[in-house]
Design a protein around this nucleic acid. Structure first.
Lengths: 221, 221
DNA sequence: ATTTTAACCGAACGATCGTTCTATTCTTGC
DNA sequence: GCAAGAATAGAACGATCGTTCGGTTAAAAT
């Protein structure tokens, strides 16, 4: 934001991103605002006029970047996916495979929702509820992301089992279902009811489930 | 509609509802359609024009029953509450207090969502996600209903503990949180991803949690 | 510095939104 | 059966929706 003001327009250093062309820059600014708005007011609530007013540009100028409202919505989903990856997946992947990473996925998700990376809580939770009965490409794109998240959990369960850290007799998809359920429910309780301890409950619940399925790691045997 | 043509205007039998006045009847018909539509398209998607077209009446004629869109939305929430009570709460209350009723609350909720009492799945799940970041009377009304549901679960947990059927050391609100989470997550997985086995997973999850907390009932000693 | 290309604006489009009137039709209590 | 009153229809309102188009300003390439 402000730090670029002190840097003159010399060639970018190695490893720095080259200054993106104008169109790309405003496109990103638009999506940043749109995704935030969508998480709070819904993807249909992201109106071209409102967005344009918020960014102090014309409707038509903004519109030209996407060509249709549906394309804007799809771009929103993609932008949210990227943020979700940076804020949840990547940090969790730093831990090594096994129960640690599985726990990290839950913890990172809860933290991501609690610290309101998106103004209205988890973008995908809102988008999924909004589009789950509206067939079309937007719904499909949201479903893809949701599926990816679920199978990431499932894979982490499988790896924890393979590492001998988790009860191998349980169904990985069932555990993925339960962990996801116990974590994401906090979003509604906190966002709608204002219960700030919902996040703690989500942590307690997921940890308790994991602990109940944990087996003593093969400590050098 | 058609069956009333064969019945003459005699006094209603005892136990039969007196024929409601015209206004009341159409009001109910409107809300029936509105609640169904809202569960699928959202409360904002319930447009006066669409509703009127679907019911083959004029916008203004329909509008006159409520006076404002907000009042229509509030009436929708109330109507949905009544249906929810009939389809979930009342059946569950038939079982006697204790772990049986607690289990019934979960089972009835899952069944209610699975058999699509509302076209778009659970009305309140959709409404909560839609309004959880939009302050106002509609959001408050939805939150009231959500709170009622959560404290009904909590009360059932307390009663099960008092009956000596459930581990008395666990926090009732925490268990209510977890049961609600494990049950309601099925809605999203089934509605968005079309995973028909989500309902089974919800049953498995809630039952497993309850079983893990159950203590042998005081069998006459 | 000039030319080419991309970005953006302003005005307007038909459609639909919620809402307000004034009539007209239909129910209902007598 | 009739009068009183409720229920509905129809037309119109300003606002906003997504979208289109022609012209203007700004950036990028030469």
């Amino acid at each position: 934001m402000t730090r670029s003001a002190t840097r003159s327009a010399t060639k970018p250093h190695v490893g720095e991103e080259a200054q993106a062309p104008k169109g790309e820059r405003t496109r990103r600014a638009i999506l940043e605002a749109a995704v935030d708005l969508a998480s709070a007011e819904g993807l249909e609530g992201v109106t071209i006029g409102r967005l344009a007013a918020e960014l102090e540009m014309s409707k038509s100028g903004l519109f030209a970047h996407f060509g249709s409202k549906e394309e804007l919505q799809l771009s929103c989903v993609d932008a949210a996916r990227q943020i979700f990856f940076e804020q949840v997946i990547r940090p969790a992947l730093r831990g090594r495979r096994g129960i640690a990473r599985l726990r990290a996925l839950c913890d990172e998700w809860i933290s991501y929702a609690e610290r309101k990376v998106f103004r209205g809580g988890c973008f995908f939770d809102a988008a999924a509820a909004e589009f789950d009965s509206r067939p079309g490409p937007v719904r499909d794109r949201i479903a893809d992301n949701w599926r990816d998240w679920m199978s990431m959990l499932e894979t982490a369960v499988r790896q924890a089992q393979a590492a001998g850290e988790l009860d191998p007799s349980v169904d990985p998809r069932q555990i993925a279902y339960e962990l996801n359920a116990l974590a994401t429910a906090a979003n509604k309780n906190a966002q709608l009811l204002g219960e700030h301890d919902a996040w703690r409950r989500a942590l307690v619940a997921t940890h308790r489930l994991l602990d109940s399925l944990a087996v003593a790691p093969p400590s050098g045997g």
